[in-house]
Design a binder for these strands. Structure first.
Lengths: 167, 167
DNA sequence: TGCAATTGGTAACAGATGTTACTATTGCCG
DNA sequence: CGGCAATAGTAACATCTGTTACCAATTGCA
């Protein structure tokens, strides 16, 4: 909505320039996709300070660890859906985690393509070290908002996600 | 998961585990940094559908183009600050844009380290083609929100940005 | 049953990105 | 002045990431 204001009293439109030629201004600082990208990147790097710097995990590996810690053994295929990672990212993340003995994979007799994955003891210990730190940091960030804003953010993110997905 | 339910019949707290040892649960789907990352990534890819697919610009190049289109000639150094890009990203983005004759650089007599950058005619034409598309897409996404939510999002993003920056 | 299409997974390459270190220029302070 | 520190910018390398193509296993259907 091209910032057009209703005029009181009279339906006289602004014809100083034909609407079709007037270029709207894009202020990068106010452009939602830009702001979201910058914010998400900053938050992401902040959290990576926990799992990457201190525990040498990639972002994908951390997501996989988080899902396995939360849900226990599951098929590799489902990991992708829950953690929003494509199959290549899953493959690489699991390779990374397996090399460090944080997860183990076992074949399913029912479908030998699909292997199920589970945290090892070492993996669970790492998970239990990271989670409190991550949650604490999340709380610190959310402390900048009022309770209403936290609730609104929840709703807004969900709505935007739906909007962009059905593009 | 370990979600606890209030017990009917009496304010007897659940002391099955001491609070200090109970591991809080991190549900990835509700974890703010994760949700933000997924949303920003989806929005980013959506907008990239405009500047990348149709006009073959990288994300950095697009940001630089946007800033130059909005503010006119400026020092390369300042581009980074405004567009949230580091100096290497600026260097690469400008190389990309210059190779396509979308920007031109000129030396300043006052400081030969620092060159000023400006859109060429071709660059401005491209800018003016992309901007309406980007703004339209932004509006379509924001249409999923109420006016109050749009306003709240603005405030919330600013607050979170401040919170994470002073980490 | 048997063959085409689908699915899970990985290898291999190409391209993008982050990091370190280097050059060139300028500012600062003795 | 002289030279050390700071700044703008880039090259070169290592890493990460996306893409394509491919294999193996399974499913579906003629």
């Amino acid at each position: 909505m091209s910032r057009r204001y209703a005029r009181a009293g009279g339906g006289i439109a602004d014809h100083s320039q034909p609407a079709s030629r007037r270029l709207e201004v894009l202020e990068l600082q106010r452009f939602l996709p830009y702001r979201l990208a910058v914010l998400a990147d900053a938050v992401s790097k902040d959290i990576a300070g926990i799992y990457a710097e201190r525990f040498d995990l990639t972002r994908q590996a951390w997501r996989i660890l988080a899902v396995l810690g939360e849900r226990g053994k599951m098929a590799a295929r489902d990991l992708g859906r829950v953690a929003t990672l494509d199959k290549m990212q899953i493959s690489r993340g699991l390779a990374h985690l397996e090399a460090r003995a944080l997860v183990s994979r076992e074949e399913l007799a029912t479908d030998r393509r699909n292997r199920s994955v589970v945290l090892t003891r070492k993996g669970r210990e790492l998970y239990e070290k990271i989670v409190p730190l991550a949650l604490t940091r999340e709380r610190e960030l959310l402390a900048a908002l009022t309770a209403n804003e936290v609730e609104a953010l929840d709703r807004i993110v969900a709505k935007l996600m739906r909007a962009v997905r059905q593009a």
